Structures are given as structure tokens and as C-alpha cells.
Simulated scan of single mutants.
Amino acid sequence: MTLTIVSLLPSLQNTNGDAENAAVLAARARWAGLDVRVVPVEAPEDLPERVDAVVLGSGSDSSLERSRQVLLGLHDDLRRWGTEGVPILAVGTGWELLGWGIELPDGGSIEGLGILAGRAVPRDGRVAGDLVVAASGGLGLLVGFENHARDYVGAEASPLGRVRAGSGNGRGSGQEGVRMGDVIGTHLHGPVLAKNPQLADAMLVRACERAGLEYAPGERAHEVDRYAAAARAQQLRAAGVAASAT
């Protein structure tokens, strides 16, 4: 049995290296002794027959329309995956495109796919810096870097977690991201799965459950996670957040 991880639009949606979250999943699966492949999908015809996990990174605003057109051709697949429990991680504009839509500063808008609740709206100035989130579902503290010029509203009932440092969804919500079942949208760059192996493992556990497989982090993962933990600790100190904060 080979796990298939789909990387959606890596040529358009890879700002901050977010498409490499797929490589993180694949590496951890291999370290666990599993067969795995990463399939880049740039068009609907690239889609493999089986999909066990999906990663959609962030892109520039100049690529929004092109990315949206391709994603529209995958709308039914994305909705089915979300319903069937396929773990999906969408970051930045990839997440925004899966929402209700994106409002632009000139008054125009880009319609989203409606897979996730919420809408991206312009904010006064870009926010960039450390982002620390106390995530729900036993994921603990998630760390990363946020860099966005839009807030996200309408997802207050289903956030990924509470902001401990940074802006997150903004508008005074104190929340970050959105989580609907096994579909996650977030502002966390990093790539987020490299900095937060607990989130990567949660996705792999779910993917393996659906495939009838068992997942347990391998020895190599434990070694690499020590580096991730050191980097996380340094970022938490810089952000003024105690490692025990939840």
C-alpha cells in the first residue's frame, strides 16, 4: 500500500516554501517505514486515482485568478475529500481561495470555492512576524511566521486555535485559522509542518487510518524533532510566550 500525498499547484502556490509541507509528510511517512509518493497536481488531469492527503500552499496575489481557475476544476474532488476525511492543509492564499471569497482593496472580489467557512478582507497595512497559536484538538502550541495583508472573518465558530502572539485572523478575534473536520486553513508559514511535527503526525495518523495502515514516528523523526523543538523554543522566547501556554 502506497500513501499518495497531493501537492496542489506547487508552481503557483509555493510562497515561503509552503508547498514543501508535502515533502515533510512524505519524509515522516518514510521514516515510519511506509511507502509514500508526492504527486504534484498543476491541472485536474494530473490528479492520481487515490489521494490520501492534500497540501495547498500560498501564492502571490498576481496568481490568484490562475490558481482559482485550476482549483475550480477540482472543486468536486476537494469537497468530496473534505467530506470523506482526507486531511487537507491549506496555507495563506491557498486557504483564502478555499473560503467564501477574497475582498480586494479596489472594491472588487474573487469568489472562493466555499470549501471552508469565512472570507478574506483587506486590513490596514500588512502584518508580518512571529505567530504562535494554542491549537485545539490536542495539537498544543503551533509556531510559524505570518505575512498577510488581509484578515479573515466568518470562521469564528471553527478556528484552528487561539492566538498567543501575532495577529492571526485579525479584527480583534484572537483566533487563528479555520478547522472543519480534517480540513485546515492557516496563516502559519514555515513550512508549518516542519516547525510543528505534531501537526504533521496528526495528518499522517488520519491518512493512515483511512488507508488501513498504522503510523508511528520513526527513530529518524525523533532525531529531527529535537531540532524542531529547539527552533520552536527559540521562537517562543522571542515571541514572549511560555512553552507551557495553551
Rank of each mutant, 00 (worst) to 15 (best):
M1A: 14
L3F: 13
T4I: 04
I5D: 04
V6W: 01
L8T: 00
L9P: 02
L9S: 07
P10T: 10
L12F: 08
N14W: 12
N14C: 08
N16G: 03
D18Q: 12
D18S: 10
A19P: 01
A22Y: 03
V24F: 08
A29G: 05
R30P: 01
A32I: 09
G33C: 11
L34E: 02
L34V: 03
D35W: 06
V36F: 08
R37F: 00
R37S: 13
V38A: 08
V41D: 02
V41N: 04
P48F: 14
R50M: 09
A53Y: 10
A53D: 02
V55H: 03
G57V: 05
S60I: 06
S60E: 13
D61E: 15
D61G: 14
L64I: 08
L64G: 01
R66N: 07
R66Q: 12
R68T: 02
V70G: 06
L71R: 06
G73T: 10
L74S: 04
D77N: 08
R80C: 07
W81A: 01
G82W: 11
T83C: 10
T83A: 15
T83P: 00
G85E: 08
G85W: 13
G85L: 13
I88K: 01
L89V: 07
G92W: 05
T93I: 13
E96F: 14
L97P: 01
L97W: 02
G99C: 06
W100F: 09
G101H: 12
E103K: 14
L104D: 05
D106K: 10
G107L: 10
G107W: 11
I110E: 06
I110G: 00
G112Q: 02
L113K: 11
I115E: 05
A117G: 06
R119E: 00
A120S: 11
A120V: 01
V121L: 14
P122D: 10
R123Y: 00
V127C: 12
V127R: 14
V132P: 03
V133C: 05
S136Y: 15
S136L: 11
G137C: 10
G137Y: 11
G138D: 12
V143F: 14
V143K: 02
G144D: 02
E146Y: 12
H148V: 01
A149F: 10
R150F: 11
A155V: 00
R162I: 03
V163E: 07
R164A: 09
A165P: 03
S167H: 15
G168R: 07
G168K: 04
R171V: 11
G172K: 12
G172H: 10
G177R: 04
M180N: 12
D182G: 05
I184F: 10
G185D: 04
G185L: 05
H187Q: 15
L188I: 11
L188A: 05
G190T: 02
G190S: 06
V192S: 13
L193I: 08
N196C: 08
A200S: 07
D201K: 03
A202I: 06
M203N: 02
M203C: 09
L204K: 12
L204S: 04
L204G: 00
L204M: 13
A207W: 11
A207R: 07
A207G: 04
E209C: 14
R210P: 02
A211S: 12
L213Q: 12
L213A: 08
E214D: 15
R220C: 09
H222L: 14
E223C: 09
A230R: 15
A231G: 08
R232I: 07
A233F: 12
A242F: 14
A243K: 10
A245I: 07
A245N: 04
T246C: 00
